[in-house]
Design a protein around this nucleic acid. Structure first.
Lengths: 190, 190
DNA sequence: GCTGCGATGCGACCAAATGTCACAGGGCCA
DNA sequence: TGGCCCTGTGACATTTGGTCGCATCGCAGC
């Protein structure tokens, strides 16, 4: 409940390893990632929801955080805001299966240092955690978005403008709420 | 939030209007946008390339900037870095036809305050220019642009880029030729 | 507490859009 | 003339979308 596990065991995590909070509602993925990140030298504190993460971070804000966006309860974006409020030095990386331009922009503006789409392996995450400054040499896309992808991005944008209110977004888009729900439940098109 | 009032009905730009640099290599779009933004109270300086924009901005960095990403020569990302270096107060909005999560992340990290995908109308741009960094305030968009219209415009744009070649366009859009044909034969605009 | 309101998640049913295969004709070029 | 690619269209199976309904939940106000 209070300070995250900091055992003195020789084979377990060590005090001098950087603390990392891992937030994802997928138990399997969380376990796998926690193990992989621990093996790479992080003192990992797992959390299954934004609320739990905040509770765990309050007494001891982590140096690093890897957060999912789509979770039951408070969203990852709100979690980012909370973590930054607790300690603006925390290096936060977003990891989501529902990547979109709209949420990426919001996450970075809120203070995340990088934004990754699932699936991402531990090495990519570690690399992202180490990044900081903007890189103007990022390759530009040379093909236009597919129609489906464009629709996905547009929906995400409008949804963000409506604070995630699905009913309201559906009305604004002149689309049936049921239809919007179905589209949102799917992963972004390639 | 200091978006100028559009109540001015003057015939030409005035010196006290906020300066805005508009950078896009598409002459038609640039002209149209320049006119639309001027009408909304900005003192618009158009530029067709990053290099030209930098040259124009050096003596007098603009208060606002709207930049395309994909341009011959230096990319919009490099331009953002240059503009921020000249004056970090400049409020930069990215407007691109080749949106991607990766470039969105980099643009924001470099200092852009928003990232829009074409097609975007002048009102959306003005709205984006007015948003402040990290501020989650919801300016309440008024015209969410229907999904179908968005799709139509996008298809037309890509079709034009492929010289009206339907098969080629269908491949670029990752959609079946039959489907594209059906869409083209139906919807006029609406 | 209770009550109404709006949001949400989800099942079910049927209509509409789309993916897929197929075939015929046209323009181009070596 | 034989490839090659584009185009228009028909037919049919599959997928997606529109619509209705209902149970649940959170919240303001009584």
């Amino acid at each position: 409940m209070n300070v995250p596990a900091k055992t003195e065991s020789a084979v377990s995590t060590a005090d001098d390893w950087p603390s990392l909070m891992l937030v994802d509602d997928d138990n399997d993925l969380r376990d796998v990632l926690a193990r992989a990140l621990t093996r790479r030298g992080f003192n990992v504190t797992p959390a299954a929801s934004a609320e739990q993460a905040i509770a765990l971070a309050r007494p001891a804000p982590p140096e690093y955080a890897v957060v999912d966006l789509k979770m039951p309860g408070a969203s990852g974006l709100e979690l980012i805001r909370a973590l930054v409020a607790l300690d603006e030095q925390t290096r936060i990386v977003v990891l989501t299966g529902y990547a979109s331009v709209a949420t990426a922009v919001e996450a970075i503006k809120l203070g995340a240092i990088h934004y990754l789409a699932k699936p991402a392996n531990a090495d990519e995450i570690v690399l992202a955690l180490g990044r900081s400054t903007g890189d103007a040499s990022v390759p530009l896309a040379d093909t236009p978005l597919s129609v489906n992808r464009l629709e996905w991005e547009h929906i995400q944008k409008v949804l963000a403008e409506h604070d995630g209110n699905i009913s309201s977004t559906a009305r604004a888009l002149h689309m049936h709420r049921r239809t919007l729900q179905r589209k949102l439940s799917k992963h972004p098109p390639g």
